[in-house]
Amino acid sequence: MLEIKDISKKFPDFELNGISFRVAKGDYFILLGESGAGKSMILETIAGLVRPDSGEIWLDGKEISHTKIQERKIGLVFQDHAVFPHLTVMENIAFALHAQGLSREEKRLRVKEIARLLGISGLLHRSPTSLSGGELQRVALGRTLIQKPRVLLLDEPLASLDIQLKRDLRRLLRSIHQEGQTIIHVTHDYEEALALGTNIAVIHKGQVIQTGTPEAVFTHPKSEFVAHFVGVKNFFSVHLEIRDQITFAITNNNIPIRIVSESINEDAFILIRGEDILVSNTPVETSATNNFPGKIVEIVPGVQGVNLTVNIGIEMHALITRESVEKLNLKAGGKCWIHFKATAVKMIAK
C-alpha cells in the first residue's frame, strides 16, 4: 500500500540514507529509534513537507514524491500537536472539511462524531490555549482523522503524557487501528512499539537497520545496535492465565512464569532484565517465586559482566559477575538453577 524506496536526503548536519520499507494496508507500523535518528524526518518526507534528494514514495500504486502536500491525503500528527491556537477546538477539527464541499450541518455532525470517538465532545467550544497536553493530542488526532487519511502518521504521540493518559491514548490508537486505519507511528520507546506495532522498522543514524514483526526484531536483533537498543534479551510472547488463584504468564512452549498483574486471558509480552536473574547450583529458598532448573547453553564474557544462557525450556539470559561464575563453577553444558521475582517481570499488553 505504502512503499518507501531508497529515500535519501542530505541536511547540513544529518542525512537520510537509502530508506526503504513497505507498509501494508491496515498495518500498524512502528519506526523505532533514538532521538535524532531521523524518524520524524521520514514522516515529514512521506507527508511531503520534506522533499527527498532521491528515491520514490508509492502510495496505492501511485508515485507521490512530487505530489503536492495538500493532495496526498496523508495525515500527520506532530509531536508538538501544532493545534491552531487562534481557532476553537471545533474549528480546528473542521479545518480539513473545508475542501470537501459539505454543508454547515454535515460539517457539524462529522466534527461531533469524531469528538465523541476521541472523548473531547465537551471541549468543542474551548480555545486550545486552555487545554492540557493530553487534550491537545486528541484534538490534533481528531483534526487529522476527520479527513479520513489514507495513512495516519504519528510523531511520538505518547511522549510527554503521564502514565494514565498514555494508557488511555494507547487504547484509543489501538481502536483506531482496529477500525482499519493504516498507521505509521514514530517512537523511541520499545514498550510503545511492542504494545501497538504489528511491524517495526528500527532506524539508526538515518538508516533502516532492521524491519520485521515485534517478535522477530526483539528476539532476533540483527545487529549489536538493535540488540542494545531494544535492550532486553529475555523477551517472550505469553498468554496470561490464572492457576490456583495465581497469575501466570504462559510462554508459547508452556513454561509458566509468575507475574504481578490483574489482567487475565490476554496475550502480552513479558520482559525480564538479565541483571534481575539470580543463579545457583541448587534450589534455594528466597523471595523469588520463579525458580527453574536448566542447562547452561553458553557463557559469554561481556562489558558489564558475564552473559549466561540457560535453557529452562526457553532460553533465559542472566547477567552475573565473573567471580560468581568461578565461585559456582559454572560451565557450558552443566546444570544450574535460575531465580527471579514475579515483580521483576515486566508485562506489556498487546
Binding site: 495538500q70 496523508i74 491552531f84 479545518f95 480539513a96 473545508h98
Partner: peptide, 14 residues
Amino acid sequence: PERLEKAALTLGAS
C-alpha cells in the same frame, strides 16, 4: 511557527 502552516497543508489546505 512554520509547523502550523505545515499542519494546515497536510490537512488539505492550499
